[in-house]
Amino acid sequence: MDKFNGRVWVLGDDIDTDIIIPTEYLALKTVDDMKKYAFSPLRPELAGQIKDGDIIVAGKNFGCGSSREQAPEIIKHLNVKCVIAKSFARIFFRNSINNGLLLIENDSLYDDIKNDEGANIEVTINEKISYNGKDYPIHALPDNLCEIINAGGLVAAMKKRNGITD
């Protein structure tokens, strides 16, 4: 998966974890039960509109708020390919890596694409994003994070440590 394309949904700055999944749905049994309520305080229809392989682009501080790991898990279960934002909140960032949800930080794409929801972009992993004939460079992730992602997330990495094979 060096390169992929996807349709873009645009969200704003400070998309917090109570928007991604409100507390009232956290006691539902599974992440699949919860996912239809994703983003409901802001855009109740959005979870039903997101299709496999779509991409979320947002402003600064995506995922701020609580430590609820259901937030990245739900986005992963909606089969969103990756989230691109100006910046991510710390706990959300760790939780996403641990669940194998790809996050990409980029300063300028959001400002260029924010009035063009539905546009198609191309992502070249650890290298660049391409939109509307323009390239947006992206940083490579640190080695220790790549190791967790390459292992398939933290659960898989710990299974390997404990000698468990599926």
């Binding site: 609580s66 430590s67 706990i91 760790r94 939780n95 641990n98 669940n99 933290l154």
Partner: peptide
């Protein structure tokens, strides 16, 4: 702690922070 407000214990000079449940 499994809660974002785990930062609270810094009041006594403890390095405390929130993590997700997998971590």
């Amino acid at each position: 702690g499994t809660d974002s407000h785990t930062t609270t214990y810094g009041c006594v000079g403890c390095f405390s922070s929130g993590v997700g449940y997998t971590e």
